[in-house]
Nucleic acid binder design. Sequence first.
DNA 1: TTGCATTGATTGTATATACCAGCATAGACT
DNA 2: AGTCTATGCTGGTATATACAATCAATGCAA
Lengths: 249, 249
Amino acid sequence: MKTPAKISRIPLSRQIKDYILHGISSGDLSPGDKIPSEAELARHFSASRMTVNRAVSELTVEGRLNRVQGLGTFVAEFKPLAPLFEIRSIAQEITEQGKAHSSIVLEALRGPADKREAGRLEVPEGTEIFKLQVLHLSDERPIQLEVRLVVPKFAPLFLEQDFTQVTPSDYLQKHVMFSEVEHKVDAVSAGPEIGRLLEIDENAPCLRLVRRTWLGAEIITYVQLIHPGEAFRFTGRFSGPQAVRDIPC
Amino acid sequence: MKTPAKISRIPLSRQIKDYILHGISSGDLSPGDKIPSEAELARHFSASRMTVNRAVSELTVEGRLNRVQGLGTFVAEFKPLAPLFEIRSIAQEITEQGKAHSSIVLEALRGPADKREAGRLEVPEGTEIFKLQVLHLSDERPIQLEVRLVVPKFAPLFLEQDFTQVTPSDYLQKHVMFSEVEHKVDAVSAGPEIGRLLEIDENAPCLRLVRRTWLGAEIITYVQLIHPGEAFRFTGRFSGPQAVRDIPC
DNA sequence: TTGCATTGATTGTATATACCAGCATAGACT
DNA sequence: AGTCTATGCTGGTATATACAATCAATGCAA
């Protein structure tokens, strides 16, 4: 059963992953469903069982499948975790609420990048931090975003009038990865300056998010919800039990 | 070089992972350092290169290493992500600020669990939701936690007077996994009731967290920071570029 | 000096095989 | 009816091997 040594442009294990993911997104496979066994998939793709094993294992780590020894592999309940960590989650949330919005760049400063990331990630020569002052406007109330950004590659994405349609693909095409983000959240009174920008009382409660990425990018966001009482929705996921071992919570 | 087929109690790939992780935690390996090549590790452990490859690949997925084809494998900057998603992150944060604190269970109600998780996770018969009213006390100011919890297994952990020392290991020993958590965050005025409990002005800005886990557990937390201006610190991580593909952010 | 091809080290992918371990079912035995 | 055992399916782990792809460094040629 020796398949020719020539490998196609995209790895076989990747194709198998895509096949399963397509089955899930198309609705052929629903959460809780049992997917074909490794042996069946190997036959279907003329692949070795180890290759299938690797593809399925990776999908398990990524939270798309649950494997049970002796029983089979099942489609997991999946909630994407991207919106939590991304720059645009606030605008996204507003969009889902059906509110029109647009954004304006108020200010753009630049400075040197923080420092080189371990293990040679994508940090080109002369990398700089961009610090953007962005006024984000909904149809009901303006939302002020102070955005300090990173890497020249990013800038074009954010210097457009309306960046509400930017997706991670756009970042990835520019070889930018959001691998880690540190978050800080607290509630503060708006204060006179923010209050004026957001057109709210300076004593009104206001959500402040500070997000720091792996390159030293810092994103400070002040938010006053359009409809008080509604909340932003975040989703997170553990990578696995080992990752949280013995960390107090 | 055929090693006996008998496998030891813990998998070889696990031993290799532990070896590398120990090197990192002991300080022998620092972020940015190059770890031994797969061939060297294979020789050191009398293992096949594939086994080493698997161990190293998993550590890469878990965010501990960065691999570069043609160059080597490097220790990554690592920030654990557990605190973000855990029930006790607030108390933890306070602890790190050096404030003493304790907690009291005010109330405990119970109701049926939400529904069964896909792919047969740990949901025993007669599972119920526990709804706990917890008053969390720091030495400076009480913090009120309304905790709605899940699964009888959990309850003992939270019915103690002080649960500040509970770690994920304790959950895992009871076969409970925090695989997914949905977060909602907003800022509200304390209001008369919360204001009285937290001993703050009823107009003071107050952080409200709603966390919903995969079993339908819902954790509602009202927090007033001890030192206004300080923020809670969270850390998150993507599982990989593929996971965020084409999700607007 | 500049540019290009070669080489060696290292990771990336894939195969074929082997045996272990967990689970459910069917059948034999009591 | 109840219990034990054998069997087959499933995933879990490991090996030995092979070749591709990428990168840095080296050496050679223009």
